[in-house]
Design a protein around this nucleic acid. Structure first.
Lengths: 202, 202
DNA sequence: CGTTTGATGATACGGTCGTATCACAAAAAT
DNA sequence: ATTTTTGTGATACGACCGTATCATCAAACG
């Protein structure tokens, strides 16, 4: 056999080529041939590493999830170690707001997948629906911790507040991608609500 | 010539057939042939009333906007006449939350168009970006009125609060469509935030 | 009454899609 | 050294896409 190549690496290269196309021209433009060209390989290779298109879409979605998680972690760390309940909430939400080129790419790609899954629910066996849910529980947990530490009004319902914050952030992200306002304006609105929750700026 | 048919009516029939497809199978499934079948006409007729596919997409988008506006108006009226600042804000936001079959259809279709416009900005010459903006200004105006009437904390920044409420509602809608929670749960979260803003339930 | 014109059907064209097939080279296994 | 096995290229197939063309039929108009 020829040079025994690293399959995982190749799959990642091809999958990320799809993500790049999805973020700029949309998922409907991500044909197998287009992905092959973007990845710099032949159509046959795309078929070889992903037997079918659905496999490719699901594989790339997994890579997108990894990239998203990595960004959230990095954003939390950037707010200082060890993380406080406040920095965990701030870091998580500001990470998924499209304020720079990378986060715009991630959120645009995520939006493309979201719409695809809406039309084809079979695609998201379970992975699609659970990720936002995990995020929400993550936020709710740290909000509760913040309440116990006296940093947040204890009369607040933590799960409801967490759901509201995440929905607010997603909605703001949509408005940024739609060109209604820029990332800084959205960040300011998010900060306004967060500071109100945590009782004033840090 | 044959029976001299009503063009506007036919266009609406065909356009709404596309919206129906978009809401169930997504816009990528809305081919000219599929739309023709759904509308019960021949492919040629779709071409006759909409010379090109882009014309069809834009025409149907206009119908979607009409349906959305009509629903918002109806929801506001359902809260009693004459409308108060509070009922205007409540009615607007609850109208665009996917809580029943019709609103689910509308928001799903809107989401499909949103993603399409993200990938093909040329489609939304101006109509796409201005509609949420109008909604936001509408909300901000009535929030300010409510402040002057003493129903809302005057220290609040009305435009920021309006943007937050609309983003929250959109984000909640996304989570409902994504199957993360049902419409009633989303409505409860929205009501919680609205009541908090307006100082307790009505 | 004939002719023009608005509305509709049937069908075709070139392109792209996802997928499949066949061939073949090169490293590994025997 | 020969026989597997793994990776890769070239190409083909049937389906569907948006769009265009040609023919036709019936109402309106002179």
């Amino acid at each position: 056999m020829p040079k025994r190549v690293d399959h995982d690496l190749r799959r990642r290269q091809i999958g990320e080529a799809l993500l790049r196309i999805a973020s700029t021209k949309g998922l409907q433009a991500a044909s197998m041939r287009e992905v092959a060209t973007e990845a710099g390989v032949s159509l046959r290779l795309v078929q070889y590493y992903f037997h079918t298109k659905q496999e490719l879409l699901l594989g790339a979605l997994a890579y997108l999830g990894e990239q998203l998680s990595a960004r959230v972690e990095a954003h939390i760390r950037a707010l200082g170690l060890p993380p406080t309940p406040r920095s965990l909430v701030y870091g998580t939400l500001t990470a998924i707001l499209p304020t720079d080129a990378e986060s715009r790419r991630l959120t645009r790609t995520y939006a493309a997948y979201y719409t695809l899954v809406l039309a084809e629910p079979a695609l998201a066996a379970d992975h699609g629906a659970t990720y936002p849910d995990l995020l929400e529980r993550f936020l709710a947990g740290h909000l509760r911790t913040a309440q116990q530490a006296g940093q947040v009004d204890p009369g607040l319902d933590a799960p409801t507040a967490a759901a509201g914050l995440l929905a607010l952030t997603n909605g703001l992200g949509s408005s940024v991608l739609g060109g209604q306002r820029d990332g800084d304006a959205a960040l300011a609105i998010l900060m306004y609500h967060l500071d109100r929750l945590f009782g004033g700026p840090a």
